[in-house]
Simulated assay, not measured.
Amino acid sequence: MEKTQIMVASNGDNENNNYDRMKELKAFDETKLGVKGLVDAGIKKIPKIFIALTDDAHIKKNLDSYSESSKEFSIPIIDLGDITKGDDQRRKMIIDQVISSCENYGFFQVVNHGVPKSLMDEMLEKVRMFHEQPAEARAALYARNHDKKSSYLSNFDLFQAPATNWRDTYYCRMAPVPPKPEEIPIFMRDTITEYSVQMEKLCLELLELIAEGLGLKRNYLKDMECGKGWDFLCHYYPECPQPELTFGISKHSDADFLTILLQDNHISGLQVLHKNQWVDVPPVHGALIVNLGDLFQASISFYDNILITNDRLKSVEHRVLSNLEKPRVSVACFFNGTHLEPSTRKYGPIKELLTETDRPKYRETTLYEYLTTHYGKGLDGESALTALFKF
């Protein structure tokens, strides 16, 4: 990736009498062709709706500085290969690595995780095929309806976020109730179904490791239904003529329990905020990236005293840079429970992690309430957890 400085537009640049942002947003949305449509049209300058604002200007965006920080920090890579050998000492070592990574970074990569590399490569290729198919085929699936289980759109928060991101997304809700087979494009149907099975297995294994690391029973987080429902967000980041002006995805933390990310094997772009510096997460062929989301943080850090003991495990802000080279693809699997299913279940404190002196930090919430807030506000630099649910 070309190392450039992320430039930002001041709020004043968007405030002139001749600029109608809402009109431009609607015009872009109505094409149903996404960012890929702009690139196919041969644009040389990005539309104003994509220019990043100064909402996170306090964080350095100079990629030369970031390169120096990447030499100092690196996201841990954890080998899960020995976890099935029945060696308790080896299992404890892996658990310690997972908890330490969550404490210090909020992110880690896993290798020898059981998901075939061939399937991972096939999944990335099918996502690329989806986004590079004829425009009319993509447009037929374009929808801004979060209730559809299989759809295509550009920026779920297009009309809420302060700046539009340079990406398009194929969305597929795979569990607890998957879409009908005919709702998934035929050329990716078998691949995404097989990949979904592998993601469920890996998620449940990771939840067991985290639960044990917190001193809970092995099935505790599984029984909380943290891994019962999941979505695929299959992102496509077209080459950008002005990558210094916009983001692939702006700064955010994930609105789920756990995320497993398959990123492009060749093009970097993902960065994690660590000690107030943006650190690159370079592609490692065969590796999967894991991070905790806001809903997991709310469950394990519900009380102030947990800040000293178990609030070590937090959802961490991250972002994706745009690039000049060529399109980048990724597949994010978001484990977010059963938020689209009727449920009055509220998520609050894990009682086994509390003491008598603890006091509330976040109020209880249902998955539906939390995610409705998340989708309603968009990626504006603040998580829904802080915006609505913190006392």
Rank of each mutant, 00 (worst) to 15 (best):
M1F: 11
E2G: 12
I6C: 09
M7T: 07
M7W: 01
A9F: 10
S10I: 02
D13A: 15
D13I: 09
N14L: 15
N16C: 09
Y19D: 13
Y19V: 07
Y19R: 11
Y19N: 13
Y19C: 12
D20A: 12
M22A: 08
E24V: 00
E24M: 03
A27I: 06
D29R: 06
E30Y: 04
K32S: 04
G34Y: 01
K36A: 05
G37P: 05
G37T: 07
L38G: 06
A41W: 01
A41E: 09
G42D: 11
G42P: 05
G42C: 00
G42S: 10
K44C: 01
K44S: 14
K48V: 13
I49K: 09
D55S: 07
A57F: 06
K60P: 01
N62G: 07
D64W: 12
S65I: 10
S67A: 14
S70M: 05
E72C: 13
E72S: 10
E72H: 07
F73Y: 15
F73A: 10
F73P: 05
P76C: 07
I77E: 11
I78Y: 09
I78E: 07
D82K: 12
K85T: 15
G86W: 14
D88P: 15
Q89V: 15
Q89F: 12
K92W: 08
K92I: 15
I94M: 13
I94A: 12
D96E: 14
S100T: 12
S101N: 09
N104H: 08
N104V: 00
Y105T: 05
F107R: 02
F107Y: 05
Q109K: 09
N112S: 08
N112Y: 04
N112F: 08
V115T: 09
K117R: 12
S118T: 09
S118V: 02
M123H: 03
L124H: 06
V127E: 00
R128V: 03
F130I: 00
F130N: 03
Q133H: 04
